[in-house]
């Protein structure tokens, strides 16, 4: 069962100068088609300006296609009557942890979504509790968001989305403004949601180490999908990724460099264990 279908999506916006005259048209997303299966962990990689965030905002009916169609859980995002259903089905977490927390107390923020949906009071409390527990922030429920670290704030934002009981959660560069510790916290929470709660995850990022656990990776450049496949398949294309000036995990890069020097190491090495095994077989082969 697919949770998201995107067909021939094109999104253009009109640039205007200071007087409001049209300067030109920028195509932010250029003919993209992709399908996301229910329960999958999908990563979308790319630079700032590659169109990945614009693409993500289509999955939550924040932006609408110029051409093509986006279906979320079988519903066309361009049909007005589905907007709220879609936003509830596909929750969204944004980049800046400060600019998406509405409540002044953690639990109140998590309750914001259910409140908007008209969930009865008692159920709101249940949902808030389970969501905060799912991201490991329950003990902070009475805190002011201003007292939390970046990673903790993002986990609260994630809880705020889960409390709406979505089938799918879209994270638009949730770790870009965090330190390494916060980044780890958030990714761990996201993986747990996918593994334990079976929520479909669409992670938009430019950090390579965050996508190695994904079921499928899409790499975007200039509004198009230029690479796609499993992490291993994508990371096999070291030269292509370097061309796009994207990071490659260092172990993959080291393996790639050695292969260029004539070592018989397979493509797409992702962990140091794999690297060691590859070296072992090199010894056997070469000596």
């Amino acid at each position: 069962m697919d949770i998201i279908n995107i067909k021939d999506l094109i999104f253009e916006y009109i640039r205007r100068d200071e007087e409001g005259n049209v300067e030109g048209v920028t195509t932010a997303v250029d003919d993209v088609s992709l399908d996301v299966k229910q329960g999958d962990f999908v990563a979308i990689l790319g630079h700032n300006g590659s169109g990945k965030s614009t693409l993500a905002k289509h999955m939550n009916a924040i932006l609408y296609p110029t051409e093509g169609t986006v279906w979320v859980d079988g519903k066309d995002t361009q049909k007005d009557e589905y907007v709220w259903d879609i936003r509830q089905t596909a929750g969204m977490v944004f980049q800046n942890p400060d600019n998406q927390i509405i409540g002044q107390i953690v639990e109140e923020d998590v309750g914001f979504g259910p409140e908007n949906m008209g969930v009865p009071t008692e159920e709101i409390w249940e949902r808030v509790e389970e969501s905060l527990k799912a991201v490991g922030m329950y003990e902070f429920r009475k805190f002011s968001p201003n007292k939390l670290s970046g990673g903790q704030k993002q986990r609260v934002s994630i809880a705020g989305v889960i409390a709406m009981h979505p089938k799918c959660i879209i994270l638009d560069e949730p770790t870009a403004m965090l330190d390494p510790k916060g980044r780890k916290e958030v990714i761990r929470a996201v993986r747990a949601l996918n593994d334990v709660e079976r929520i479909t995850v669409i992670l938009i990022t430019h950090y390579m180490e965050e996508v190695i656990y994904a079921d499928k990776v899409y790499v975007m450049d200039k509004g198009k999908v230029t690479l796609q496949g499993t992490p291993r398949e994508v990371f096999s294309e070291v030269e292509r990724l370097k061309e796009l000036r994207l990071d490659v995990p260092q172990v993959t890069l080291l393996a790639h460099e050695l292969r260029k020097e004539g070592f018989p190491i397979p493509k797409g090495i992702l962990t140091k264990e794999e690297f060691r095994e590859a070296l072992d077989s090199c010894i056997k082969e070469m000596l």
């Binding site: 939550n60 259910p114 709406m164």
Partner: peptide, 27 residues
């Protein structure tokens, strides 16, 4: 202004649509 813009988007994404039909967590 940037924050206001971001926040408006985040609120919309969380189904905020004014005070009608809203329930309260802490009535």
């Amino acid at each position: 202004f940037r924050r206001a813009n971001d926040l408006a988007m985040a609120m919309e994404a969380r189904c905020y649509r004014g005070g009608d039909n809203r329930t309260k967590m802490k009535p």
